[in-house]
Simulated assay, not measured.
Amino acid sequence: MQKESFIHIAKRVAEGNATEEELSQYLHYLDWYAENNPEWDQVSPSEKSIIQANIRLSLAQKLSPPKTISLYRKYRWVLLAASLFLGAFSVMYTLKQFQPVNNDEKQNIASSKAPQIVAGQEKATLTLANGKKILLDSVDDVEQLSEAGVEIIKESGGQLTYKVIPGQNQEAGVNTLSTQRGETYSVVLLDGTKVWLNASSSLTFSTALYANGKRKVDLEGEAYFEVKEDKKHPFVVLSDGQEVTVLGTHFNINGYKDDGTIKTTLLEGSVRVTSHLDGSRSKSSEVVIKVGEQAVLSKKGIKVIQKEVDQVVDWKNGDFIFRRESLTEVMARISRWYNVQVVFDHNLNKSITFSGQMSRSRDLSDILKNLSGTGEIKFELENSTIKVLNAL
């Protein structure tokens, strides 16, 4: 295979766009390279078979990903083969499938005062119009209260539901549902719209919901919306200089302030994303995005890109899905969900990226074992602080 042809196919494999024929050619070349590489002679026959099988399975999943993606380690000879041809391209490490940890891997998670840190839970705080705060958790009990002609029901399974009380007038009291780091919750609004809140997020809304011909809510952080269709009353989400307007659709908004962008991703229907630069409507710009598109709002304006939606809503479905995500992005998500602080060693190579899938229900130690299984990074965990260092 010519060098230029291999580079073209390797790029398509890395992007997840390779055809079956291209994957076959790519695997054939890697097998040839391995057999002609001196390092390959140092690998035992049984380990050779495991490595080749893992690579084939990992690449095959790019064409037809199953519900749960297996996580594998990239071995040195594979990285060497890629680096010879791809030069300055960042290396993408695929995580090793979780297995009982051997002694070498234990060394990559040093801990002198490390408590067991469990996954986030279904918890939130509801702030009523009168300022009263109600703590919500995942205990299987049902509570209900009424406010301004609206019944508020705390249901099992981490959900809050608003319903109209027949025969009473609905007044515009303002409620806020908020989650801390390590918490998630969902709410069904008065019109039947359901909203899932990710960790460290809040949703502020009128209990009556309807006002001036619109349904309007304010969001900080990240949430997934399934909006009840109502052509006469558009649903509007406001978030730090952005306005998303829909009639009835499914979409996700990620607007964490420390990320520096607001990302709106569409899963069903269509939405209009409006940016009010400098808070001025006279300087606003807008785009309409389609299914599978993401509008990224930054100080430079709005950019529309294609996005794999299952990765965007992985948190709602109980998973971490990493696809060519930087170490900084990976650790930011882990930090929010496990309510831990992350410190990076100043010599750390932050340019490496990760791909793979892990359940968000796992304890933190399991997640760190998978990440350290790449052999490129290691962790020091003390109390609720993770220090990330180079493993080599």
Rank of each mutant, 00 (worst) to 15 (best):
M1F: 09
K3W: 06
I7E: 14
I9Y: 01
K11L: 10
R12E: 12
E20V: 12
S24K: 14
Q25D: 11
Y26Q: 05
L30A: 01
D31W: 06
Y33G: 03
D41S: 12
D41H: 10
S44A: 05
K48G: 00
R56V: 00
R56C: 00
A60V: 00
P66S: 15
L71S: 10
K74N: 13
K74R: 09
K74Q: 06
W77N: 09
S83M: 11
A88G: 10
V91K: 14
Q97P: 00
Q99M: 10
V101M: 08
D104M: 02
E105K: 05
P115K: 14
I117H: 10
E122V: 01
T125H: 04
L126N: 13
N130L: 09
K133A: 13
D137A: 04
D141K: 11
Q144A: 09
L145E: 02
S146K: 09
A148I: 04
V150Y: 07
I153E: 07
I153K: 06
I153S: 05
S156R: 09
T161Y: 03
P166F: 02
P166M: 00
P166D: 03
V174N: 14
V174F: 15
N175D: 10
T176D: 07
Q180E: 14
S186Y: 07
V188H: 06
L189N: 06
V195E: 04
S202P: 08
S202I: 03
S202F: 06
A211C: 02
G213V: 04
K214I: 13
G221S: 13
F225E: 10
F225L: 07
E229R: 15
V236H: 11
Q242R: 10
E243C: 03
E243W: 10
V244L: 08
T249V: 09
N252S: 14
N254W: 01
G260I: 04
T261E: 11
T261R: 11
T261M: 08
I262S: 07
T265G: 04
E268G: 02
H276W: 14
G279A: 03
S282L: 10
S284M: 11
S285D: 15
S285T: 14
V288C: 05
G292P: 02
S298T: 14
K300D: 15
I305M: 01
V309L: 11
D319E: 07
I321P: 01
R323D: 05
T328H: 00
E329S: 08
M331T: 00
R333I: 00
I334L: 15
R336V: 00
W337P: 14
Y338R: 13
V342Y: 12
H346S: 05
H346G: 00
H346F: 02
N347V: 03
N347H: 12
N349A: 04
S351T: 09
F354L: 14
M358N: 04
S361G: 00
R362N: 10
L364C: 06
D366W: 03
L368I: 11
T374K: 02
E376W: 09
E376T: 05
E382S: 14
E382P: 08
A391H: 02
